[in-house]
Design a binder for these strands. Structure first.
Lengths: 264, 264
DNA sequence: GATTATGCTTCCGCTGAGTGGAAGGAGGCC
DNA sequence: GGCCTCCTTCCACTCAGCGGAAGCATAATC
């Protein structure tokens, strides 16, 4: 729009989005200068666009000058069809697991080469858990991740297996060893981790099969130790997973349109 | 930016936001034409801006041409400091109530003259419930709403009381009667509704007091009937509410900055 | 209390990014 | 074929946006 832009070709909209997406889980509050630098825009431009965004309610400016994401964007985000159907269907079953185990319960799907956490019920026990709703974690170090990885397309597996970051001393970073684990996951129908993502936290997870036999999601729980009641936890998970799978299959009976198209 | 705009003075950013906020709970999917009409923009302009938004991942265009809110906005929305602290603190207590009662559990705050639902655990029983996370409902017809209204500033009460919409045949629309109910709510420490929002659904709710004695939120549950176990439900709610209140007070012990500033 | 540093706000001349009417597809229905 | 609806592309006009620079406010440093 302007004559003397430093990056001709970039639309105003793209700049505005750069400002919005400058926020992330580690940067929920940004000063003007931080915002400008993270978005890669000149300070004056940032100042003006940010003011527009504040005027529209997309951002909020605190009394101390910091910008935060506005409530209107929270509203808007909730409308995104992020597995809406899956989450609604799964919700009561997750609650059942939570009631039965008192542990932290997760519902997750695969997003490219990472685990995306769709839902989380936090447990009573003081287990350190790093995931929150919306967070992405590596597949090879989480229970739900191993389940999803074990059933992912070959090219995804290849990409994940070719670079296994060490997160704790117990993270499985040897390709061959993880491959053996994945084979077991497919055979046994569940995956476990022991302090591979967070010290002091173990997990166990099972797949949620879709109508066509593919794996559409994973349900897992996080506990301080698996020693004691692995069998009990696994039973609870499997009941829930088959419940979700059954409900999903029924819901899809009238095979209309693409996923998540049930607004009415 | 352009010479021949029909509404000079409107920034590109404001137009882009108009497009985004054209989506709401009743309109999660919009065609180009719908989008243009709801945003109040010419079709060609809408087409171009929407393409920019899609390029940035803020919107997604389905195969059938419909636009929906994109996953990146979902991510972003989760970063909004919408009572982050309150929700985190309350979550385990809400789960307790849910486990104990198997009913639909709500956490809500007041937003201007409406109830804003922050959290919802759906129950097993087939009770019709209209609320979802992020939805706003009138205060006078919901349990949590009555609690929040009873403890709202006088001007808010006045505005709400001066126009009581009828939603079901049982909605309380007489000002004097609702005022008497509010007095009781303050005295008894809980509120109830009986099919005032939805036929076949009753609710009971209690306030969550903040450190300074004001009411910061309400916790409520929805059941088919209150006849049977009102006392039991009330007890569960009160335990949870005081648990949340106590945790909140402890959390605020180091009184630093404004709410929701715990990113690390 | 002067000096420096840092971060925010405002100003303003230049110009190409944005605008939207209009024309041209692409389907769907009768 | 004719008609309708909805989407896409084109293009001449021009003012909204651009961002360097100067000014301002506050806080730290000497």
């Amino acid at each position: 729009m302007a004559g003397n832009t430093s990056t001709p070709g970039a639309s105003v909209v793209s700049r505005a989005l750069a400002l919005l997406f400058a926020f992330d889980a580690q940067h929920r509050r940004l000063t003007l200068t931080q915002l400008a630098s993270r978005a890669g825009l000149p300070l004056a431009t940032t100042h003006r666009l940010a003011a527009d965004l504040v005027a529209g309610g997309a951002l909020v400016r605190r009394a101390n000058g910091e910008y935060v994401v506005g409530r209107r964007l929270w509203d808007l985000g909730l409308l995104a069809p992020v597995q809406t159907g899956l989450r609604q269907v799964a919700s009561p079953f997750l609650n059942d697991i939570h009631a039965a185990t008192q542990a932290t319960v997760h519902l997750a799907v695969r997003e490219r080469t990472q685990v995306l956490y769709l839902e989380r019920l936090s447990g009573r026990a003081s287990v350190p858990v790093v995931s929150t709703v919306g967070s992405r974690l590596p597949m090879h170090a989480t229970g739900v991740g191993k389940v999803l990885l074990a059933h992912a397309p070959a090219d995804v597996q290849e990409r994940v297996l070719s670079s296994l970051d060490r997160i704790t001393p117990y993270t499985v970073t040897q390709r061959a060893r993880l491959e053996r684990q994945l084979t077991r996951v497919r055979k046994d129908g569940f995956a476990t981790t022991e302090e591979e993502m967070t010290l002091g936290a173990c997990s166990i997870a099972v797949p949620v099969p879709g109508p066509d036999g593919s794996v559409v999601a994973a349900i897992g729980i996080v506990v301080p130790s698996l020693k004691r009641d692995r069998a009990r936890l696994l039973a609870a998970l499997q009941v829930a997973a088959s419940g979700v799978a059954r409900t999903l299959a029924n819901e899809l009976a009238p095979p209309g349109a693409d996923a998540a198209s049930r607004s009415r």
